[in-house]
Design a protein around this nucleic acid. Structure first.
Lengths: 251, 251
DNA sequence: GTGCGGCCTCACGCTACGTGAGGGTCAAGG
DNA sequence: CCTTGACCCTCACGTAGCGTGAGGCCGCAC
């Protein structure tokens, strides 16, 4: 006897993340007919149905219409690469448009309000201290005329409180991971530490400014030479510095 | 007397790119009521209406519901930058989501081994040679196990013929620009040459693989050391090499 | 035997319009 | 002056992909 292989709508719904109504709908339109029914009329789905559902959801994510999904799934391959390519093009165009909107929006917002992104109490709430502004003034003194700083200002001006919470969370995770790596005796130039360094670089790129490997190296130098950074990074600064260099060297 | 300032639906439709029905709809739900009517009952829109429509379309592009757009526009900017932030956040989410979709789509396409993206005739038509295959195999031998190679394979698997035409056009433009810069006596480490090098880097990043400045430097080294590249770039290889290094150094 | 949660089948609601049907209106040409 | 064709009007139903009850059967625990 094969594994259970008999699921009711609710079960399938919970497993796949869609609603029961959606399954009813897909049954109705024949996109995903239930393989069978129980004596009392309950829809019963098999593992094969689940697999089909997975494929359906994949194409749905790509914003194909249900009808087109049906066609794609019906005939095994055939000329469907065209669909995929078209979809790919569409998505790339959308990506470009979105990027344009983003840029316009950021400029608009920067113009609208220079500086003050959060009220002092909100900053307090997030960072547990209100050193952020102080930190900012220091930073501006030193970096005010670099492109990275300007880009950082442009981007951070647009962040909401939720964004800051996430930034903080990511940063903390990264610091903790480094601490754990030291604990575990991972070498600073080993694969684990390098991966963490890469995370760190991407964190900066994502939230503050385009941070290539060269930039990252420069930043690493600061971690050991600038007391402000050393304060944030505590005893692990040296280790992080080493890891960043090792990571950058490998690219 | 001010400029015309009296447009009928069809005119507005053509100017804004929406359908007349859409304008009817916006009128019906009160989102964009026509400022007036002609004697015969034609809707008449003013320049102010057009401005409002532009704003509506902007928010619509950001996937706000019409009802919410109405609320945003009605309220004379109370929490104005608040919803700007929300838009910004939404856009970034969409950006990330679309990037994910693109990635998934590319993997799917690569997995289906649609590697034969262009027929030999098309290859010849675009690149003026059908020896791409050999070239490709050589490259794979040498670079096959690098991340950049894999990323490039994944991404290019999804390109259409039109994409390739554009890629080729961009590349040619870049090469010609370099040639022109040499002709004009531009120094290889001057601003013009560096800008061209930056274009070149972005071209690669956009179409093939993430090419940071370090990576770009490595690539530059090949241009002067690897005969295959030297062939493509002819006599300007040395100059390009120099420009890339200069550009990377400034970042 | 009686809850309670899960399942069933209608069936109407929703968004943002598309798409006619049936009928006036405006400017140019015959 | 009258016709023609492009444009405009107001209903009003259709579409996709479900959401959201309503009314009722099923099954298992207490």
């Amino acid at each position: 006897m094969p594994p259970v292989d008999e699921y009711t709508v609710g079960t399938v719904a919970r497993m796949s993340g869609v609603s029961a109504r959606t399954l009813h709908h897909y049954d109705e339109i024949g996109l995903l007919p239930a393989s069978g029914r129980s004596e009392s009329g309950y829809r019963l789905y098999t593992d094969a149905d689940l697999e089909r559902l997975r494929r359906i959801l994949f194409y749905r994510e790509l914003e194909f219409g249900l009808e087109e999904i049906a066609r794609i799934l019906e005939d095994p391959e055939a000329g469907d690469d065209d669909h995929l390519r078209r979809q790919h093009r569409m998505l790339r165009e959308r990506q470009a448009r979105t990027a344009g909107l983003l840029h316009a929006l950021e400029q608009e917002m920067e113009a609208r309000q220079m500086g003050i992104k959060l009220t002092p109490e909100e900053q307090f709430e997030i960072f547990g201290t209100d050193k952020l502004e102080e930190h900012q003034q220091e930073a501006e003194q030193r970096w005010g005329d670099t492109d990275a700083w300007k880009e950082s200002q442009r981007r951070t001006a647009a962040y909401t409180k939720d964004d800051w919470v996430q930034i903080k969370a990511e940063a903390d995770t990264n610091i903790e991971a480094f601490a754990a790596a030291i604990e575990a005796g991972e070498p600073a130039d080993g694969p684990v530490a390098r991966a963490l360094a890469e995370d760190h670089r991407q964190h900066i790129s994502r939230w503050f400014y385009e941070c290539g490997y060269d930039m990252h190296r420069n930043l690493a130098a600061l971690y050991v030479s600038d007391p402000r950074f050393t304060k944030t990074w505590g005893g692990i600064a040296q280790y992080v510095h080493h890891a960043i260099l090792a990571n950058a060297a490998g690219r």
